[in-house]
Amino acid sequence: MFINQAMFGGEKIAAVQLGGASKSRTIIVQEYNQANIVTRPYENVSRSCNLFKGQWIPDRRDTLYTNFSCTTIPYRRNCFFHGRKDKDFLHWRWKPEQCELPRFSSKTFLSIVQGKTMAFIGDSIARNQMDSLLCLLSTEETPKEVYKDAEDRSMTWEFPKHNFSLMALWSQFLVTATETMFNGSATGSFDLHLDKVDQNWSEKITFIDYAIFSDVQWFFRQHYLYEGSNLIGCILCQVPNMTDLGLNFAIKRAFQAAFKQINECKNCKNIFTVLRTFSPSHFENGTWNTGGGCNRTRPVKIEDVIGRDSNWELRKIQVEEIETAREKGEYLGNRFEILDITEIMGMRPDGHPGLYGGNTWMTGYSDCIHWCLPGPIDVWNELLLEMIKRQTFSLN
């Protein structure tokens, strides 16, 4: 093996040749000069480059954290703790077509958000991203947990040296929801009030500078829909004399209500609102409760993405709603942006816990919805950092 190194544009490029003359291969490894990023975090920010069109390419660098170095990884996302052996899924990086996506810099992130509050608002996948960010930032400063609810769903962490607060606000529908009961038992079905936002996040929005919204998974079941306290229909139901308004209708109205709340909030700061688009699941050979699994160990090409059409329709609904909110929010000082990961993550069937999620309460079921930590979900926060840098750069 031999290594040639050179400096190019402030980055160190290493060409590593492995094997003998007859079986040699060269891997190009880029090591970003973190010092340059920290001292000049807004330089070389390409605002014209589409961060969300590109491909996954091999990357042999170590992850920025491990399941040993980060002590806050939730039990069910700690795939190596539960026996996962393959590590190839960790050695890919996202490469946009027309630019480079810098490796995550905790120094840069914390320097930009100093004195601010960031909240991930949504379901357990929103929490999944928050946990990823918590691990990444802990390489710079050890966070302090200051709040956690009884169900370990909503929580707040503080980074005292940077006066930065990081929150997960549980809201599986974004709007007000009440679980329906039958003979005193919960049914898993909800009454959704599409014109009333969930107070679990809306009551805290005045203190938030960055709001990252994401939701969809909990809509995939039978629910009853209300507007103005009136029952207007249902989704995924077969009830006589009741209109099934469809999954897309409910999701559209929920995001409408959430973004309307942002734009009509009179006591809010100028909120930087991010929509993280639908995160696709990767069940194969069945669904979650019919033996479906996700056993792949490497990315797939975009043309091989399973269920792309349905995933794309859900993404389209979300994008339409945030674009509408952006038009209304511009003159109010609110910023609305899209963290567009649907296609990116459609190519990563290898990154889910599968059978390595510690689901002792659901033994034998694969988790092909959430993402291992560390894992490909970490790219969401690399993309988020670039979006925040672009936003900060445009204001200076």
Results as ranks from 00 to 15, higher is better:
138 S>C: 01
259 F>Q: 06
194 L>P: 14
325 A>V: 03
166 L>K: 10
105 S>H: 08
219 F>P: 09
189 S>A: 13
358 G>Y: 10
254 A>H: 03
251 I>Q: 04
116 K>Q: 14
262 I>Q: 06
175 V>D: 05
297 T>Y: 08
115 G>D: 14
237 C>Y: 03
236 L>M: 13
370 H>D: 15
163 N>H: 11
3 I>D: 06
393 F>R: 11
41 P>Y: 08
115 G>R: 14
187 T>S: 15
349 P>R: 09
91 H>W: 00
379 V>G: 10
136 L>M: 12
121 I>A: 04
78 N>D: 15
363 T>L: 13
175 V>W: 06
214 S>T: 05
122 G>N: 08
373 L>Y: 12
347 M>E: 12
211 A>L: 01
211 A>V: 00
382 E>C: 07
17 Q>K: 09
305 V>I: 14
126 A>N: 03
244 D>Q: 11
273 T>A: 13
174 L>C: 09
30 Q>N: 05
128 N>Q: 08
42 Y>V: 00
348 R>M: 09
87 K>P: 11
241 N>F: 10
157 W>M: 01
369 I>V: 15
244 D>C: 10
141 E>G: 06
139 T>F: 05
131 D>L: 06
7 M>R: 14
90 L>E: 07
361 W>K: 15
248 N>L: 07
384 L>T: 15
72 T>Y: 13
334 N>H: 14
62 D>H: 07
168 A>F: 02
141 E>S: 09
186 A>W: 03
141 E>A: 10
180 T>G: 00
68 F>W: 05
303 E>R: 07
364 G>S: 09
334 N>C: 06
368 C>E: 05
299 P>M: 13
108 T>Y: 09
353 P>K: 06
290 T>Q: 05
41 P>E: 03
203 E>I: 06
162 H>Y: 15
169 L>H: 08
110 L>N: 07
46 S>N: 15
221 R>F: 10
337 E>W: 04
180 T>W: 11
314 L>C: 01
137 L>K: 05
367 D>H: 09
139 T>L: 01
381 N>C: 07
191 D>W: 05
378 D>L: 04
271 I>P: 04
240 P>A: 08
192 L>K: 08
57 I>A: 11
238 Q>I: 10
238 Q>D: 13
35 A>E: 13
83 G>V: 14
331 Y>M: 04
83 G>E: 13
285 N>I: 02
71 T>G: 03
353 P>M: 06
229 S>I: 09
82 H>C: 06
29 V>G: 01
